[in-house]
Structures are given as structure tokens and as C-alpha cells.
């Protein structure tokens, strides 16, 4: 597991049914491209987040495949429709096999 990985998410606490809400996510990660070399000329091995998904009550919102050209601390902003109260589940997949998860609840009135 890469060091210092911390997901941060912004989801509104409340919404009306059928509303479109904006979600912002950021995960601190070094996103090493695998192309850089260290001071001795050795290649630094690739270590990135290669996939990010967001689901709401089991239904998919977005599923993003990431390549090394995504900047350090991958940030994504997108929209979702919330039909009922429930929980957003965010998942990041690391090259080294680690999976980082975080959930956020939203109340629909």
C-alpha cells in the first residue's frame, strides 16, 4: 500500500429527489509515471491509481480508467442524479493491488 493515500470527497448532505448534484473527489497519491529516473539513472517503477469508480446504492455513476498522464493527487468532478436517500461509494484501485474505499451518505427530501 502506497504511503499517505487519503481520499477526500465533497457531496452535498441533502438534495431533492431527481436532483442533479455535483461531486468532487480527490485522493492524495504520488501517481509515479514509470518514466522518470532517479539520481542514479534507474527507472522509478510506475505506481498510479489506475481505476476510479463511484456507485450510488449499487448503481454505477462513473467508472474512470486512469493513465499515467493524470496529475498527482487525482481529482475528479462530475454530476450524479439521486433518486432516493442512500450512500455513495467511492473506490480507487492502485497499481500495487490496494483498494481505497470511502462512502458518503446523502438524504433526499
Amino acid at each position: 500500500m502506497a504511503k499517505g493515500v487519503k481520499p477526500r470527497i465533497k457531496v452535498p448532505k441533502q438534495a431533492s429527489a431527481g436532483d442533479m448534484i455535483t461531486i468532487k473527489t480527490l485522493i492524495s497519491h504520488k501517481m509515479e509515471t514509470g518514466l522518470r529516473k532517479d539520481s542514479d539513472g534507474n527507472k522509478i517503477p510506475r505506481s498510479i491509481i489506475n481505476r476510479f469508480t463511484c456507485d450510488f446504492n449499487g448503481e454505477n455513476v462513473v467508472d474512470v480508467g486512469l493513465d499515467p498522464a493524470i496529475s498527482v493527487n487525482p481529482y475528479f468532478q462530475f454530476n450524479a442524479i439521486v433518486p432516493e436517500s442512500g450512500e455513495f461509494k467511492f473506490t480507487w484501485y492502485d497499481d500495487d493491488g490496494s483498494v481505497y474505499e470511502k462512502a458518503k451518505k446523502i438524504t433526499v427530501t
Binding site: 442533479m20 450510488f56 462513473v62 498522464a69 493524470i70 496529475s71 454530476n79
Partner: peptide
């Protein structure tokens, strides 16, 4: 870029307007 791929975004049934913002390396 050395590798032209940047990202692939698949929108699911609950995604709102089909937009996304991110930050990339050039």
C-alpha cells in the same frame, strides 16, 4: 505525451449531465 492515453470515462445510469473535470500532465 510519451503515451497518448490520459483517461477513459464511462458514465453509468445515475450520472447526471455527462461532464467531468480533472487535472492532467502535458
Amino acid at each position: 505525451n510519451p503515451n497518448p492515453n490520459v483517461a477513459t470515462i464511462n458514465f453509468g445510469p445515475l450520472s447526471g449531465s455527462r461532464m467531468t473535470s480533472t487535472r492532467i500532465r502535458l
